[in-house]
């Protein structure tokens, strides 16, 4: 099987891709790993940020507003360079407090920047969804004596999460695609592997075609999975399937 495939590809324009499939696999795994880590950390950060953003306390609200506005209003590439190259300007300080070891690593800088970036976008999505929860439901819950944490856990968040899901799907897809920027700070993700193989084989178009196809496939797989999740979470909003055996078709 492998030998016949080898014969099929070895002499074609796609040979550089075929001969380096293992590298592309590792690159894809790194891309997925960076996406998963940043999405998870970003989500953990986003909820408190969203709550602070709608807080009545201006000392809590304004700094978070500024943070969200900055990260949504500037290019991710600048943010990445600011962390990766910019930290070098304060090297002595970072060495003193013992974090230089981390900031020197492109991997750490990538995760840090992507997390801060996606947390800002996700917080804004969550804020919109929380504020869209009908106030009558909150009033009803209060009338039952729910407040604070319990009100959020039982009433506000379940509703808000369902409403936020379509926009959050987009955000996760954007973050997944945005991870391709980490190749610029020397990480060997899917795009990074593509760059290296091109620099050796000069098969520019073939390699980018293959890399693009992998990104495309994973993107639509993710969208499909999120749609399944959305379908599951909205079961109570659909009509109940008809009970009993289906009526026999009229003769």
């Amino acid at each position: 099987m492998m030998e016949s495939l080898d014969l099929l590809f070895a002499d074609t324009r796609f040979a550089p891709v075929w001969n380096n499939l293992d590298r592309f696999l590792w690159g894809t795994l790194l891309t997925i790993e960076i996406t998963a880590l940043s999405v998870a950390l970003g989500l953990v950060l986003a909820l408190p940020l969203a709550l602070a953003r709608i807080s009545a306390n201006p000392l809590l609200r304004w700094p978070v507003y500024g943070y969200i506005f900055y990260f949504r209003g500037t290019p991710l590439l600048v943010q990445l360079f600011l962390v990766y190259y910019g930290s070098g300007q304060f090297r002595d300080f970072f060495e003193d407090i013992g974090v230089w070891r981390l900031l020197r690593e492109p991997y750490f800088c990538a995760i840090l920047t992507l997390t801060l970036n996606t947390a800002a976008y996700t917080a804004e999505i969550l804020r919109g969804a929380i504020q869209a929860v009908p106030f009558g439901e909150v009033e009803a819950a209060r009338a039952y004596g729910m407040s604070g944490f319990r009100l959020y856990r039982r009433i506000v968040l379940p509703k808000a999460i369902r409403m936020a899901l379509p926009a959050y799907t987009n955000e996760v897809v954007f973050l997944f695609q945005a991870t391709s920027l980490v190749s610029i700070i020397t990480l060997m993700d899917l795009t990074g592997v593509g760059r290296v193989i091109i620099s050796r084989s000069f098969r520019t178009f073939e390699v980018w075609f293959f890399v693009g196809a992998i990104y495309c496939a994973i993107t639509y797989l993710m969208i499909w999975l999120f749609n399944k999740l959305e379908h599951r979470l909205s079961g109570h909003l659909r009509d109940r399937p008809a009970e009993g055996p289906k009526p026999a078709p009229a003769e």
């Binding site: 695609q177 391709s180 920027l181 795009t191 980018w208 075609f209 890399v211 693009g212 990104y215 495309c216």
Partner: peptide
Amino acid sequence: VVRGVPELVLILIVYYG
């Protein structure tokens, strides 16, 4: 295709393509 592939990769594809 455009929505499925990262901007950076598209830029490289279109530029060289």
